[in-house]
Every structure is written in structure tokens, then in C-alpha cells.
Simulated assay, not measured.
Amino acid sequence: MKIILTQEVSGLGAPGDIVEVKDGYGRNYLLPQGFAINWTKGAEKQVTVIRRARQAREIRGLEHANEVKAAIEGLKTVSLGARSGAGGRLFGSVTPADVVGAIRAAGGPSIDRRRLDLPAHIKSVGAYTVGVKLHPEVTAKFTLNVTPTK
């Protein structure tokens, strides 16, 4: 059975890969769980769109990862305003998407939110050290300063 993966499947491939699997594995597990779709010519065109989007987000190598690390660490401190109550407790928590938006607003590069290594839930005002795993060998660190807004 020929299928197109929509999510990463361990030992099989990444999103957008066209793979050949046994009929039962595809029909009983991959398709119902939403990990894959049936292969057709039209779906194969969608694969090219998925691959292009993945390549745009992807760090291209160790040298590129070091360049992005230098850009992120050059920011020193990234400020993020969040609504808070008395005592500095936030209404809700800081999400990875919020942090990525703050990095872009500070003039940093666009990164994938799944690469962030946030400390346990950020639920109060203060300074936090955030890591960004850019490559298996390269991790950038910067300070996130969560400030209260009205």
C-alpha cells in the first residue's frame, strides 16, 4: 500500500514522505490515526507544498545553525508583555507562540515554536532563560523578560 505521511512516524519517515507499507498497517493504524493519507496524484502535489514549507522552516546545517544562534544570542534580552494581576501572576501562561512572536518583534530570526525549550509553565512576571534547539549540536540561549501590561 502506498501512502503519504502527514506526521512524523518513528522508523518510517517525516511529513510529506511517500512510503510503501503493508496493507494492514496502513489501513488499520496509520490512516485512522491521521498519520497518513492514501497516495493519489493529487495528494502527491500536496506533498510538494508540505516539503516546501518544511524546508523553509528547517535549519540547513551546522553553519546555518551557528548563524541563527549568533542572531538569537545577539538579542541579549527579549521582552514580552503579558496581562497580569496583583503580585505579578499572569492571566494564563506564556506559550511558545508568544515567545516566537517576541523574538521576531525584537528583530530576531523567525524560528519554529517546536524548537523552543521553555522552562516549566511561565505563569508570573520575571526573567527566564529560554533555550532554542537549532541543531543536535547547537543550542542558543537568551533571556526572556516577562513584563506586566494593562
Rank of each mutant, 00 (worst) to 15 (best):
Q33L: 10
G107R: 04
S93N: 08
Q33G: 06
P32F: 10
I18W: 00
G26S: 05
G24N: 09
I59L: 02
Q33C: 08
G74E: 12
L80P: 03
I18Q: 04
E20K: 14
S84W: 03
A102I: 02
R52E: 14
V99Q: 03
A105M: 05
F91R: 01
I18N: 02
R83A: 12
L80Y: 02
G108K: 01
G92D: 03
N28M: 07
A70K: 04
V49R: 13
A102K: 01
G61F: 08
A97R: 12
R60S: 15
I37N: 02
G24S: 13
L90M: 06
R89Y: 05
R27A: 09
A36M: 07
I103W: 02
I111V: 11
D23V: 15
A43P: 02
I111T: 05
T77I: 15
R60H: 14
Q33H: 10
I72R: 00
K69M: 12
Y25M: 04
S84M: 12
E44R: 04
E20T: 15
G42F: 04
E20D: 13
R57D: 05
V47P: 05
G34Q: 11
T48L: 12
A43S: 11
R83V: 13
S79W: 10
R52G: 11
G34M: 08
E58Y: 01
T40K: 02
E67C: 02
Q55E: 14
T77W: 01
E73S: 10
V47Y: 00
V68N: 00
W39N: 07
N28I: 13
E20F: 01
R60Q: 15
R54K: 13
A53I: 14
S79F: 12
A105Q: 09
I37K: 04
G42N: 12
R57C: 01
F35A: 09
G85E: 02
R104E: 15
I111Q: 01
R54A: 14
A43E: 09
D112L: 02
K41C: 06
A53P: 07
D98N: 08
R54Q: 13
V94H: 04
G42W: 00
P96R: 09
K76L: 12
G88P: 04
V100E: 06
K45V: 14
A65G: 05
A102W: 03
A65S: 09
R60T: 15
G61L: 09
G87S: 05
V78W: 03
V99G: 01
E44T: 11
G81D: 12
K69N: 06
E20R: 12
T77K: 09
P32I: 10
I37V: 15
V99R: 00
R83H: 12
G81E: 11
P32D: 10
A36V: 06
R89K: 15
T40R: 00
T48N: 09
E44K: 07
R27Y: 12
G61W: 03
